[in-house]
Design a protein around this nucleic acid. Structure first.
Length: 510
RNA sequence: GGGGCUGUGGGCUAGUGGUUAGGCUUCCGGCUUAGGGAGCCGGCGACCCCGGUUCAAAUCCGGGCAGCCCCA
């Protein structure tokens, strides 16, 4: 804090007189941290997590962190949007056990192979007495859900079965853990669906992608691209994997929700059969979808934050309006008014609070800007007398004065503008971040500029894996996959020079 | 998976073998202040853990735990 204070003290334009200029720009010289988000994203990220009290990283188990109210409140809202959307589309909520017996876990061969290295096992109880069977702390819950699906599904009338749960899952990550982005316990939603045909299952995959757009982009303001992952990078046990990549300011992509066509890969070992209209027994087709809320939150921080701190889209802001009274004790009317305003806003469904702490006014301003509260209301004797309010917008860092009576309509209008603005800024930053590359050098160039390279590639089935390894080794990047509507290559594979059968996207990742 | 760096009050840090472990900040109490990071007075509070070297360890060595950064 002391560093920041030094770096941005003084030189503050004060609005004089009773009528500040509308949309006055303030604070253009100030830097909240001594760390620039653009230049040093990694440190900026770590710093904002601590400074804004998003998570306490001091918990003494590697890869586990304590999520604090400021992130939890936002993530609760994020959960709500995801769950409402899923429920609107026919998913029913479940709560499954955290423990999965090893015998379930082992039923699908590819799945076991993929996840076993990351599983935390529960093997004992009490004072070292062994359990009769090892129990996995769920790393994902296919093998819990599908065990039950085999009981629940008997007839085509039971289909489609659309379920989901919100859950914490555990994965023994061996890569460097990072708060929110990759921790050994994280919070997500997993949706599991069963269908009578592969066509319907594929419909579901498309619906999941649409859900991702509706929630992640339109509400959380995160631009992304869905890729169909190459054969060698599918979810363990999937027929096909589709995953949304979000590009962070440091030029690395992070995999956000993925949706998987599991086909009959699980329904066979788990014996999930139904009697179809034609009287025959058939295996169901399964899909699963997994938006990881705590990781999506990492992207919200990364995409919207700036050098003043966090910025939140209106609908997921932990607090939407902070009221800062400007008053000495003699002006009790101001405090009273501030509290009335808070109640009024709360009654109208707006998350508002009054900062009654004894810190100085300026301190409060900087603090709440760092915390990313979208709107701030300043109220003092002057406003009280004139029945007006000074309102500050975090996204634009601008102030304007409004009549108190128009507060609600103002908020209604401006909250939409804020979201629109944040989404536009995010979309704009994402624009032109995909460039065509005709050679390894051009790919490297694109990657070094923090971009995603698009190029011709021999194959996204297993024959192409060798070329992908070249890219991993030499360019430190990965083949993210192809677009859903496959593009036609217009030249040979950029790596091996053989005939290309796909157009792929290549990016650095965390 | 590899490498580097780092663990000192809640936070940031000074301290290269013997110091009463120092400073800033936060916090607590009090007074004055109040429109963009307020001031004064007083107070509480720390050497990550285990082992070793030594007359003596926050300091040196080994191991563990944890964190950050970079690379694969």
């Amino acid at each position: 804090m002391s560093k920041a204070r030094k770096s941005c003290g003084g030189k503050r334009e004060k609005s004089k007189g009773s009528k500040p200029v509308a949309k006055e720009q303030v604070g253009e010289e100030k830097v909240t941290f001594n760390i620039s988000k653009e230049e040093n994203f990694s440190e900026w990220f770590t710093e904002i997590v601590k400074r804004a009290e998003l998570a306490d990283l001091r918990y003494n188990v590697k890869g586990f962190i304590v999520f604090q109210p400021w992130s939890v409140l936002a993530m609760e809202k994020m959960y709500r949007f995801l769950e409402e959307t899923l429920q609107r589309k026919g998913h029913k909520p479940y709560w499954f056990p955290t423990l999965i017996p090893e015998s379930n876990f082992k039923l699908e061969a590819e799945h076991v192979k993929g996840f076993t290295p990351e599983v935390f096992w529960v093997t004992e109880h009490g004072d070292g007495e062994k359990l009769s069977e090892r129990l996995a702390l769920r790393p994902t819950s296919e093998t819990a859900f599908y065990k039950m699906f085999s009981y629940w599904i008997r007839s085509y009338r039971d289909l489609p079965l659309k379920t989901y749960q919100r859950a914490n899952v555990f994965r023994y990550e061996t890569k460097a853990t990072r708060p929110f982005l990759r921790s050994r316990e994280f919070y997500w939603i997993e949706a599991h669906c069963a269908f009578a045909s592969e066509r319907e299952a594929m419909e579901q995959v498309r619906e999941d992608m649409e859900t991702t757009k509706e929630v992640l982009h339109d509400i959380f303001g995160l631009p992304f691209i869905f890729f169909r992952r190459p054969e060698w990078d599918k979810f363990a046990g999937a027929v096909a994997t589709f995953a949304a990549d979000v590009l962070h300011p440091d030029g690395k992509v992070v995999q956000q929700p993925s949706t998987h066509l599991l086909g009959q890969n699980f329904s066979k070992p788990f014996n999930i059969k139904f009697r179809d209209r034609d009287g025959r027994e058939k295996y169901v087709y399964i899909t699963c979808y997994g938006p990881a809320v705590s990781r999506i939150f990492a992207s919200v921080i990364a995409i919207h934050g700036d050098d003043y701190g966090l910025r939140f889209p209106w609908r997921i802001a932990p607090l939407q309006v902070i009221i800062v009274p400007v008053a000495s004790e003699k002006n009790e009317g101001v405090i009273k008014k501030a509290l009335e305003l808070k109640e009024f806003l709360l009654a109208n469904g707006i998350d508002a609070d009054v900062d009654l702490s004894e810190r100085s006014v300026g301190d409060k301003f900087y603090y709440w800007e760092m915390k990313g509260v979208p709107l701030r209301i300043e109220i003092g004797p002057r406003e009280l007398e004139q029945q007006r309010l000074v309102v500050f917008r975090r996204d634009t860092m601008s102030k304007e004065e409004i009549a108190e009576i128009e507060l609600l309509s103002y908020i209604e209008r401006v909250s939409k503008e804020i979201d629109k603005n944040l989404i536009e800024q995010a979309d704009k930053a994402f624009e032109n971040r995909i460039v065509d590359a005709k050679s390894k050098n051009e790919i490297a160039e694109a990657l070094d500029q923090g971009k995603i390279a698009r190029c011709n590639f021999c194959s996204v089935s297993h024959e192409g894996e060798k070329c992908a390894e070249v890219i991993e080794k030499e360019l430190k990047a990965r083949v993210r996959g192809t677009r859903l509507e496959p593009e036609k290559p217009d030249g040979p594979c950029v790596i091996c020079g053989k005939k290309a059968s796909a157009v792929v996207y290549i990016a650095r990742e965390y």
